[in-house]
Design a protein around this nucleic acid. Structure first.
Lengths: 248, 248
DNA sequence: ACCTGAACACCGTTCAAGT
DNA sequence: ACCTGAACACCGTTCAAGT
């Protein structure tokens, strides 16, 4: 993401964890997670496969690092960990306790989730890896800590807040991985559009007696026409759901 | 799932798609999705790897069939497709139009989602495969059709209902794959308990200045003490979120 | 001390040979 | 016509050999 990676044979000078993570991320973005292979990563950096093991104990460690790297991007966003500088008003931390209405604290939670989902959207195929790592790296825990803080301000008990944060963050990953437009190996715009068209045609060819509503919704299912609205609405619904008072 | 599969060399008599799907499912449940391999599946049924290709064009087709098989289990549940015979009252299909309160139609949607999540929970590692296939097999489309019906009864427009159903079903998969107790290769109870203990200890060892709330919630994050409540609450929140009137 | 090539035990899949 | 074994092009990872 920073500089163009070594091409052809490539110089083997700058081999390091961050460099390899960047290379693996580009590989994943371009060709999917299955393309992220120790051997291909090594080849990409003009090095023997075994050189990778100097930086990652095994493939699982590499994948963990990919998830961690995605989560680390949240640090560059809004006031997550504690040193943010965004548009949100910085002094509303303790406001809106227990309120069910749309008060000041609400905006904070929605902004937080919007920022997180933006990070996940940058590398959709890595989103599941990030989800698995959220409690296993500082950046991920910072996100969770922030969400727990907001939920506590809204009057949730620690247990409730913990369950709710799990719910929220997992659902955000689902939003990203389940985004309608998503096509596995759609490198270019052309292939994507073709896949969407085929998906739509397949739905429209269904038995109208059995699946009338699915057919009527074919356009929505085939492609995500407006991702911004898709995510904004999803987050609105999730936040509203979390605010529901559960019977105990 | 039906009968015990061929063991040892095994008889190669009953080789068929359903038999292979059942074998692959047992393999996935016991050792994870990575253990589902053409070669291991063949060996398990006392047959050459190439014999598998008589029933599935390639590995992707096998995985598709695994997802479809999970979704097919929804047919054995409540009144999903149209010929159900469960506890729910059968005549409330057209009731509760547009109501935002907790009327008759609501119970229907929650029951529907509960049934679906129960099916997914039977084979958690296959849940993502089922999600990808939901619009590509009849059983999956029946579920979607039912959800769309309930949402329409509640006054959603077709577009809204389509987006909401996507949201709901993806979130359910997230609920299952993100269930706290989940441990990758935890065959027995022993290994699971050990993994939970380690996870908890790791959280408790964090810096209390940076992650006080995460530490306080360690128990909730380490294990899902009460799955029934976890899923019931999650579904309640999701349904409530879907009922929210979005500003347009 | 470090990086490497060869090797091992696996993959999915192709293909020509066997019955 | 069907199933198979050998083969090919890949994997992740181990290990002893090179510099």
């Amino acid at each position: 993401m920073t500089t163009s990676p070594s091409q052809g044979r490539g110089r083997r000078v700058g081999l390091s964890r961050p460099v390899l993570v960047a290379g693996a991320t580009e590989l994943a973005d371009a060709e999917g997670l299955d393309a992220v292979t120790i051997r291909r990563l090594a080849q990409r950096h003009g090095v023997s496969p075994m050189a990778i093991y100097a930086h990652f104990s095994d493939k699982e460690a590499l994948f963990d690092a990919l998830g961690d790297a995605v989560l680390a991007q949240t640090g560059a966003l809004e006031g997550l960990g504690g040193g943010g500088h965004e548009d949100g008003s910085p002094g509303e931390r303790r406001a809106g306790l227990g309120g069910g209405s749309l008060g000041a604290g609400e905006r904070g939670l929605e902004d937080l989730l919007t920022g997180f989902v933006t990070v996940l959207r940058a590398h959709p195929v890595l989103a599941p890896l990030a989800a698995r790592r959220i409690l296993d790296c500082d950046a991920g825990r910072d996100v969770v800590e922030s969400v727990l803080t907001r939920l506590g301000e809204e009057g949730h008990t620690p247990r409730e807040a913990a369950a709710a944060s799990q719910f929220l963050l997992n659902a955000l990953v689902a939003l990203v991985t389940g985004e309608p437009g998503r096509t596995a190996g759609a490198d270019d715009e052309q292939a994507h559009a073709q896949a969407v068209r085929e998906r739509r045609a397949r739905l429209l060819a269904l038995d109208p007696a059995r699946h009338p509503l699915v057919i009527a919704a074919a356009d929505v299912f085939a492609d995500c026409a407006d991702p911004e609205t898709y995510y904004a609405d999803g987050i609105r619904r999730l936040v509203a759901g979390v605010r529901v008072k559960l019977a105990r």
